[in-house]
Measured scan of single mutants.
Amino acid sequence: TTLTVNTQTYTFTSEEEAREFARRYGAKTIRKTNGTWEVHG
């Protein structure tokens, strides 16, 4: 199964959650914005 996250942004309140998600789905960018963490595919 392949998950494609081209134009979607996922927002997390903790860096740990964001990094775990990025690691699991191979997202390329993690960015902190206004106190939340954004993961970009």
Score class of each variant (00 low, 15 high):
35 G>V: 01
40 H>Q: 14
30 I>K: 02
11 T>A: 06
6 N>Y: 07
26 G>V: 02
25 Y>G: 02
11 T>N: 06
26 G>R: 05
39 V>I: 04
34 N>E: 07
37 W>L: 01
25 Y>F: 10
32 K>M: 12
5 V>R: 08
23 R>F: 06
40 H>R: 10
8 Q>T: 11
10 Y>A: 05
23 R>G: 07
21 F>V: 03
1 T>P: 15
29 T>C: 15
5 V>W: 06
3 L>V: 13
24 R>P: 00
18 A>K: 00
14 S>F: 02
7 T>P: 08
7 T>F: 12
31 R>I: 13
4 T>E: 12
3 L>P: 14
3 L>K: 14
20 E>H: 03
1 T>V: 09
10 Y>K: 06
13 T>R: 05
36 T>V: 14
32 K>S: 08
4 T>M: 08
11 T>K: 08
17 E>S: 05
33 T>I: 14
4 T>L: 11
7 T>A: 09
1 T>K: 12
6 N>S: 10
24 R>S: 05
25 Y>H: 14
40 H>K: 11
6 N>D: 13
25 Y>S: 08
41 G>F: 15
37 W>I: 02
5 V>F: 07
34 N>C: 15
3 L>Y: 04
29 T>D: 08
17 E>M: 06
10 Y>T: 05
4 T>Q: 12
27 A>G: 15
10 Y>H: 10
31 R>H: 10
5 V>I: 09
1 T>M: 11
17 E>G: 02
15 E>I: 05
6 N>A: 11
9 T>E: 04
19 R>T: 07
22 A>C: 12
10 Y>R: 06
40 H>F: 14
27 A>E: 04
38 E>D: 02
3 L>S: 14
38 E>M: 05
9 T>W: 13
6 N>W: 06
8 Q>P: 11
30 I>A: 03
33 T>H: 10
2 T>L: 10
12 F>C: 09
17 E>W: 02
27 A>K: 05
9 T>F: 13
33 T>Q: 09
21 F>Y: 06
34 N>T: 03
7 T>W: 12
18 A>S: 00
19 R>V: 09
26 G>K: 06
19 R>H: 06
30 I>P: 02
22 A>V: 03
25 Y>R: 06
19 R>E: 12
20 E>A: 07
7 T>I: 12
18 A>C: 02
21 F>A: 05
21 F>N: 01
38 E>S: 03
30 I>G: 01
5 V>E: 12
38 E>A: 04
31 R>E: 08
32 K>H: 10
25 Y>W: 09
28 K>D: 10
21 F>I: 02
25 Y>Q: 06
22 A>Y: 04
35 G>S: 04
25 Y>E: 04
14 S>W: 01
3 L>G: 14
3 L>R: 13
10 Y>L: 06
41 G>S: 13
40 H>P: 07
29 T>R: 05
34 N>H: 03
